[in-house]
């Protein structure tokens, strides 16, 4: 057995899982609180990535520092999107919600193509090439940093949902929105803020994406599909499932990439194959929670 490449695969899988988790968390928050699968979540990540890219290229702002800009920026975008498109369809049948967010997703993809062409862009910082050697394993500095930030983000989100007033309100709303209205939670406002927070998370994910992947108009859609795969693996609308699903996807991709001939090409399709296989075995997703 070639141990170095085995451990390297594990390390790569876990590190990319961090990024996937950060993308999926935003999706999970919206799904958990308001029961909507937001197809445009990936495009918000894409906007975050482009913002980071331009801040870096035009103003020389470090991509990790620009999180402080992309998060609030995307929060505002989120509030705007919520107010004018999501709020009117909160009570619509799920398929209408799907079509609406799919429409947003297509709109934003094409807007990006019009504004920035289809070129792949990348952010190369002074530390982009650096890597650490941990025993047999090499770990790129940017990957490690994005992983650390994703983990921190998850922790913050969990604390937020369990300890802060607004977070608790979101959890209450996700469990029972008639009841929470009775205990005085403003459901509409909670929805709006949950959507905004999810978009802010997308902004952060976008900044992270720009440091370790190419930024191009379709990057968001690719990430959305991976996030759907993770949701389906981990069960809809719960955080621990999302984390576990991210690990499964990250590791599977990384192992396929290493051990299957021409694996890096096949790895791109893993999430699609997993979606199909898992849903066929268990139509409600692996963890089996289903929102009606």
């Amino acid at each position: 057995m070639d141990w170095p490449s085995f451990f390297q695969s594990i390390a790569n899988g876990v590190l990319i899982a961090g990024l996937y988790a950060s993308v999926t968390l935003g999706l999970t928050l919206v799904l958990g609180v308001m029961g909507i699968v937001n197809f445009a979540h990936g495009e918000l990540v894409m906007l975050g990535a482009y913002s980071t890219f331009w801040l870096f290229t035009m103003l020389g702002i470090d991509p990790l520092l620009s999180i402080a800009i992309t998060a609030p920026l995307l929060f505002l975008v989120g509030i705007f999107v919520y107010r004018f498109t999501i709020r009117p369809i909160l009570k619509d049948p799920p398929l209408n919600q799907l079509l609406l967010t799919l429409g947003l997703s297509i709109f934003l993809q094409n807007l990006a193509m019009i504004l920035w062409k289809t070129d792949s862009r990348s952010v190369i910082t002074s530390y982009s090439g650096m890597s650490l050697h941990l025993g047999m394993v090499h770990v790129g500095a940017t990957r490690l940093i994005t992983f650390a930030i994703s983990v921190a983000l998850t922790a913050v989100l969990i604390v937020f949902l369990h300890k802060m007033r607004l977070g608790k309100a979101m959890r209450a709303v996700s469990e029972n929105n008639t009841g929470s209205w009775l205990v005085g939670i403003n459901v509409q406002k909670t929805y709006m803020l949950a959507f905004g927070v999810a978009c802010a998370l997308a902004g952060v994910s976008g900044s992270l994406v720009s440091t370790i992947m190419y930024t191009y108009p379709m990057v968001g859609f690719k990430l959305s599909l991976k996030a759907f795969c993770i949701l389906i693996l981990g069960g809809l609308g719960n955080i621990s499932g999302a984390l576990l699903g991210s690990l499964v996807l990250g590791l599977t991709e990384s192992f396929v990439g290493t051990y299957v001939p021409e694996g890096s090409g096949w790895a791109e399709g893993i999430s699609f194959f997993l979606i199909i296989v898992v849903l066929i075995i268990k139509p409600t997703g692996l963890a089996g929670t289903r929102r009606e």
């Binding site: 429409g103 947003l104 297509i106 709109f107 934003l108 993809q109 094409n110 193509m113 019009i114 062409k117």
Partner: peptide, 9 residues
Amino acid sequence: YGHQIAYGL
């Protein structure tokens, strides 16, 4: 590029 923007809109 991006003429499908109309579809989304």
